[in-house]
């Protein structure tokens, strides 16, 4: 084990890229879920509309 404080600074790059990647991936997943919910709501509305018409 060797103490090298400069490694903290040099690895800050991974902190920035890592957190950015996670936030982006989660952002994409959120967008997908929101879209899926909207599609699901529309399909449900359409279905209930058809049932009412019958």
């Amino acid at each position: 084990m060797v103490f090298n404080p400069l490694n903290f600074v040099s690895n800050l790059y991974y902190m920035g890229v890592g957190m950015a990647c996670i936030l982006i991936v989660i952002g994409v997943i959120i967008a997908f879920v929101v879209a899926l919910q909207k599609i699901g709501d529309k399909l449900a509305e359409k279905k209930s509309g058809e049932e009412d018409a019958q």
């Binding site: 800050l12 902190m15 890592g18 996670i22 936030l23 952002g27 879920v33």
Partner: peptide, 21 residues
């Protein structure tokens, strides 16, 4: 879900800290 992402900060902070040793 965004908070799940934010709460991974400790992993990357510890990575920097542990890399000193």
């Amino acid at each position: 879900m965004i908070f799940g992402a934010a709460a991974q900060f400790g992993i990357f902070f510890t990575l920097c800290l542990a890399s000193m040793f």
